[in-house]
Design a protein around this nucleic acid. Sequence first.
DNA 1: ATGTGATTTGTACTATCGTACAAAAGATCA
DNA 2: TGATCTTTTGTACGATAGTACAAATCACAT
Lengths: 236, 236
Amino acid sequence: MVRKPTSRETARKPNMREAILAAAEELFATNGFNAVSVRDIAHAAGANPGSVTYHFKTKDGLLLEIYRRHCGPMNLRRSELLAAARHVRDLQDRLEAIVRAYVVPAFTSGSDLAGGGARFTRLRAVMSAEGNEVARKIIAQTFDDTSHAFIDAIHESLPHIPRTDIVWRSHFLLGALYYSLVTPDRVSRLSRGETDGSDAAAAIEQLVQATAAAFQAPALDQAAPARRRTPASSKT
Amino acid sequence: MVRKPTSRETARKPNMREAILAAAEELFATNGFNAVSVRDIAHAAGANPGSVTYHFKTKDGLLLEIYRRHCGPMNLRRSELLAAARHVRDLQDRLEAIVRAYVVPAFTSGSDLAGGGARFTRLRAVMSAEGNEVARKIIAQTFDDTSHAFIDAIHESLPHIPRTDIVWRSHFLLGALYYSLVTPDRVSRLSRGETDGSDAAAAIEQLVQATAAAFQAPALDQAAPARRRTPASSKT
DNA sequence: ATGTGATTTGTACTATCGTACAAAAGATCA
DNA sequence: TGATCTTTTGTACGATAGTACAAATCACAT
């Protein structure tokens, strides 16, 4: 159990800043932003409340730093995987690879923290639900590029599906992804113990399989809800 | 001057209790539970803070009453629609009808309040994300029956798909449904204005179409992960 | 009109919030 | 070593939180 730490890990333990970030990330992700006090975070990190102010100035600043810490690596990993997925020959395999490129980093990537990816994604889900302003700004300017690239890749693979439909379906994917991380216990409960909802590998495979099928569903013309299904495809 | 309208059932003046409930519902659904103060609610309802205490005793009691108000009608409507959907002949149509039975009441049903269904469902999404204890208890004991009935209906229509997969996919459906109500603006933004994310009818149709396809995706054998269509990625 | 019970108001109490700031403690290097 | 900079601690302040409660007000049967 006792292991000689490498040079990179050595600086971690006494680093109070990192401990605060990790504690805040965990608490925000599970309880929301407003339910967690700066004192809660400091206590969980074994730090003094004043120390949080010193390192991050404000509570918003702390949240901002959490995003800054994760957004870069995660989107980098996504674009790498997406670039590779674009070259897959078989359509079905390519769709799955594209979805995987979007989903996998959300579960595993992030900073070098263990399980940081899933924790950060859950945090994003919660901030989104709470309508957090700090998060909203960062999300729009950081993730929209990635989302568009992902949508474009899907659209290229499924040119007969209107872009609007693909936007909706990718939106559903993100919602499903978020919800899987927010309440994994619900899956365990409803499956009567046959599955562990917090099993990341299982969640990823289920999500990829289901979403790849959803993207391939017949197109929907939404111009007029009362109108029946027609193969009209109008590009504006 | 003011005519007295006979019996006690008449809504003489806007019932303050209802106004408080509506205001709380709206504020909780958009900002979360902890971010909204009792004073905020009272002010939005044009009431006095003390009046909230009088009618609902505590802030938790207020949330509890919101749930009590909506859960019954919504689940009743769901079971009605589900019962009808089970009898649809064509498999594809039946799947869509079942999904619709789950989705439509979440958008439209609820109490007699205008647009109350979507608002309450959004509130549930936010409470779920925040890990609200009051909501968690009610959800588990009120919605699990409905969820099981829904899963059973899908499973009967798709007997070759393992129940576990259906649980996952219905979980994704709920996540997608929640997310559509939480951040409809994201759909508008990503579609570059081609679609209005807050258009309930469009959201429902997109959700039904995508989810019906997802349920029909090939089964996933996770008990014995020997066979895989795509090469397994050994890297995390 | 008057009494009565149901509501609404105004206010106050205590706890906790985010944040500020000075002093103490470490760390670094001449 | 002492000087200087960084980090941590302890404490305090004003704002606001949830809730309690007495007084004021209202609806309405008598």
